[in-house]
Amino acid sequence: MPHHLMNLRHVPDDEAEEIRALFEAHEVRYYETPPSRWGISMGGFWVHDADEAARARSLLAEYQRQRLQSQREAYEGRRLRGEAGGVWQMFRHKPVRTLAACLAILVIVGLSLLPFIRI
């Protein structure tokens, strides 16, 4: 029976490539199904054997721990350099786009709450 190791929906290409390389370096016999274009099927990495699944899951857990640490360090570096920011930085770099998005959010919230306000 197949064992699902990891969902590939919303996984960046570089992470998927690193996982493929990890599995091939450790000779994990896996196969891959791609996610659908419209988000109906999730895609993922799979193995057939339960023992292989346990070994692959332990490799994935270690890889995810290392990736989390490296991504946190990269984000902290961007934040300290002022490259990562919130709404204010988006507004400074792309004011028209940010203002249009905020206006669209207000319109959607207004339309959603309109029936409750009229009660």
Rank of each mutant, 00 (worst) to 15 (best):
H4T: 07
L5A: 11
M6R: 09
N7K: 11
R9H: 08
H10E: 14
H10S: 09
P12D: 09
D13Q: 09
D14A: 03
E15S: 05
E17H: 01
E17C: 01
E18Y: 00
I19T: 02
L22F: 01
F23G: 00
F23I: 03
F23E: 05
A25S: 12
A25E: 13
H26W: 03
E27P: 00
V28W: 01
V28D: 04
V28L: 05
Y31M: 04
E32L: 13
E32I: 07
P34D: 11
P35D: 01
P35Q: 00
S36K: 11
S36N: 08
W38R: 15
G39D: 09
S41E: 14
M42E: 05
G43K: 03
F45E: 06
W46M: 05
D49E: 07
A53V: 10
R55M: 04
R55V: 13
R57Y: 02
S58I: 03
S58M: 12
S58K: 12
L60P: 11
A61I: 00
A61L: 14
A61V: 03
Y63F: 15
Y63D: 03
Q66L: 15
R67I: 02
L68V: 06
S70C: 05
S70G: 00
S70I: 00
S70P: 01
Q71E: 11
R72A: 10
E73T: 05
R78Y: 00
L80H: 12
R81G: 11
R81S: 10
G85N: 10
G86W: 01
W88H: 14
F91Q: 14
R92F: 00
H93N: 10
K94P: 01
K94D: 04
K94Q: 12
K94S: 08
V96R: 09
V96Y: 06
V96M: 10
V96C: 02
R97Q: 14
T98N: 00
L99G: 06
A101P: 01
L103G: 13
L103W: 06
V109H: 03
L111A: 09
L113E: 10
P115L: 06
P115M: 04
P115S: 07
F116V: 05
F116G: 14
I117H: 09
